[in-house]
Structure formats: C-alpha cells, structure tokens
C-alpha cells in the first residue's frame, strides 16, 4: 500500500505546485492592468494627493513580489481575499455565501446526472446499433452542441412562464428549507444535467464498447453468460478508470461551467458574481473567484487520477 500513499502524496504536491503557479498568473493580472487602478476609480478630477492616498490604502505602492506574498499569505492563513474595489466590502464575505449556493447547485445536478448517464451509457453499450442506441447517440450529440442558454430558455418556455410549474428565477431572499431549495433550483439543475449527461453517457458507452472487443469478454460470452452480466461483471470494472475520469471532468465542469446557467436563472452563485465583477473590472473579486474555481478544478482532477489508479488492481498491487 505504501507506494499508493507515495503516489497520492506526489500527485498532491504536483497539484499544490500547479495551484501556486496559477495563483501567480492570477496575481500577475493586476500588474498587467493598463492604467492606474486608483486613478481610474477616483476619476479624472482627483487630486494627486487623494490618488496617492488610495494607492497606499490598496497597497499599490508596494513592489509586486511583496504584494503577491501578502495576498497569498492572507489567503492561506486567514482566508482573506482582500477588499472589493467596487463596493469596499471584504471579498471573502461576498464569496463564502455564494460558494455554498454554487456547490449546492453542482451537487444537485451531479446527483441527477451521474446515475442517469451511467445507466444510459451502459444500456446504449448493451443494445448497441439498436434503435435505442442510435436515438440516444443522436440526442446526446445534439444536446452537447446546444449552448446552455438555449437549453435553459427552452426549459423555461416549457416548464415556467405562462401556466408553468417551476419558477424561472431563483430567489433565495429568505433562507430556503431543503425541499424548497430542490423546488426552486429545479430548472437550473435540470439544465446543467442535460448539458453534462450527454458527454458522460457517450464516454461510458465508448469505454465499455472498447472493452467488449477484448478476448476475455468473448470468452465470457462463449461460456453462455447473459449479456447484462457480461457488461456489469466483466466489462464495467475494467472500464471504471476512463469513466471516473469523465465523471470528474464533468463535475469540474459543473462547478466552473455554471456561469451562464447562473446568469440565466439569476441564481446567486459564484459565476454570477464573477460576471458582474468582470463587467466593472473589480480585480480582487475576479482573482478570488478564479482562484477558487481553479482550486476546485485541480482538486477534482487530482481525485480522479487517484481513484482511477485505485480502481486498477494491477497498479495497486504493483510488484
């Protein structure tokens, strides 16, 4: 087992290095900004003294490496992302509540889409080239190509609006109970599900079909084992690694790709915050959100790597 732990430690270290470089790129962003932040914020009529005062207050008069290290230290030690340029509130405060809602939405969508896409993928592999398979494939390809807002507005058109059942805008002004949440966030979750399910289903199907051509599967078939059992007991365990990878990629997509869906449904998540901040070029907020997204992305890919290795006995019991 020890080499597994060693591998996990290695991957973790690599992930940390990646995150560090990413944070460096993100921090370099402010450095490359054309013009002066303080000047831009105060406008043309500001006196040189006020501009200088604001620069000192924001720490802009320090050299880059000191600013970067302070920024990083604050984040690591106290989770402090600095102060928003647009409204002067602490960034951490703005992010933390929205992060919770974004994660909620991602989990909600994942809870529907992962079992659904695995089932559909296995069924499509089992009945490949049948009408069901062709239909599932064509609709998967179609829904992959749809932009998220198209799916979202079709759903709103069908399920919300005049005589509709579900709300087209998500409103959390009062803290929702669990069932209320499920009801209010139904449309965004279904939109995300439709977007990611197709991809996961296609990859599951491809992974299993790839394996079905191998000799040991043919052997199992010749023994007279039922097709369902061949797929579930013989093919699926070996197809786990690619499937886990795809699921992780799509979960990463769920967390980061929610931007458009959040804007459509006015869902109070991180994506919406990011878009609003990009519009007014509120750099500290954009940096903080980007860092969180990147961390989630790196972490999920890392987990996928480790899980994929663990699912392969040849790698676990390496001689």
């Amino acid at each position: 087992m020890s080499h597994i732990l060693k591998m996990i430690a290695q991957r973790l270290a690599l992930g940390l290095v990646t995150l560090f470089v990413v944070s460096l790129i993100i921090a370099l962003g402010t450095e490359l900004l054309p013009g002066d932040f303080a000047q831009e914020r105060l406008g043309q009529s500001a006196t040189p003294e006020t501009v200088a005062a604001l620069r000192a207050q924001l720490g802009l008069d320090q050299p880059f490496h000191i600013r970067y290290l302070t920024w990083l230290r604050d984040i690591v030690t106290s989770g402090d992302f600095g102060v928003s340029l647009a409204n002067g509130n602490p960034v951490t405060e703005q992010i933390s509540e929205r992060l919770r809602y974004t994660l909620w939405l991602a989990f909600y969508a994942a809870a529907i889409s992962v079992p659904l896409s695995l089932t559909l993928g296995i069924l499509a592999a089992l009945f490949r080239n049948s009408f069901f398979d062709r239909f599932a494939n064509a609709s998967a390809l179609t829904s992959i190509s749809f932009p998220e807002f198209f799916v979202a507005y079709i759903l709103i058109f069908l399920l919300a609006g005049a005589g509709g059942v579900f709300p087209s805008m998500v409103n959390f002004r009062t803290d929702p109970t669990f069932s209320e949440y499920l009801y209010r966030a139904f449309l965004p979750a279904i939109t995300l599900t439709l977007v990611v399910t197709a991809h996961m289903m296609r990859m599951t199907r491809a992974a299993i079909i790839n394996l079905l051509a191998s000799p040991y599967i043919e052997m199992a078939r010749l023994k007279g084992i039922k097709p369902m059992r061949v797929v579930l007991r013989h093919a699926l365990p070996n197809a786990l690694a690619p499937i886990i990878n795809v699921i992780a990629l799509n979960l990463a997509y769920l967390i980061t790709g929610v931007v458009v869906v959040e804007v459509v449904f006015v869902y109070p998540g991180l994506g919406q915050l990011m878009v609003d901040s990009v519009r007014v070029r509120d750099m500290p907020v954009v940096q903080g959100v980007a860092l969180i997204f990147a961390a989630a992305y790196v972490l999920l890919n890392l987990t996928a790597d480790v899980l994929a290795t663990l699912s392969n006995p040849r790698l676990v019991h390496k001689r």
Binding site: V21, I25, T30, L32, A290
Partner: peptide
C-alpha cells in the same frame, strides 16, 4: 501549456478579459 490548462477555460477567458479590457 499544462499550467494554462489547469485553469478552466471560461474562467480563464473572463480573468484575461478583465485584465486586457
């Protein structure tokens, strides 16, 4: 390229657009 790909695409685009305008 590895480092650039470690940041999700749409997020990176948004970040860079904030920087360059």
């Amino acid at each position: 390229v590895d480092v650039l790909m470690a940041i999700p695409a749409l997020i990176f685009v948004l970040l860079l657009l904030t920087i360059v305008g």
